[in-house]
Amino acid sequence: MSDSQRQSDTIDENERRHELGSYLWGYGLALALTLVPFALVAWSGWPRVTLLWAIGGFALVQVVVHFRFFLHISLARQKREDLHLILFSTLILVLMVGGTLWIIFNLYGRMVPELLP
């Protein structure tokens, strides 16, 4: 085994611990972020709209947790094609989904009011 190989092994050691920690953290956080909304829906008795906001909030945070701890996407390093890709996709997704909801519910409002929530 060459010198450089050994050197990289020591770096690997840090990285390895870090990575294991990342999975554990991710699992723990995701678990918590799952349990809370389920518990809220089951037992809290909050008004529906508040509940929906809470569920949405927890879901968003959990998505970020998954990206960060399971898929190892972070904002830190410089050359991040995957990050750019995800952000661009999110932009397109927001345009498409947001636009769709805006348009369809507006149409419902003007033409079939009974389909409005």
Binding site: M96, G99, W102, I103, N106, L107, G109, M111
Partner: peptide
């Protein structure tokens, strides 16, 4: 190009704002 698709159905009945 992702922000203009509605112009294919301006006449479907949606609000003038959209």
């Amino acid at each position: 190009s992702f922000t203009v698709w509605l112009h294919h159905f301006f006449t479907m009945g949606q609000s003038p704002s959209i």
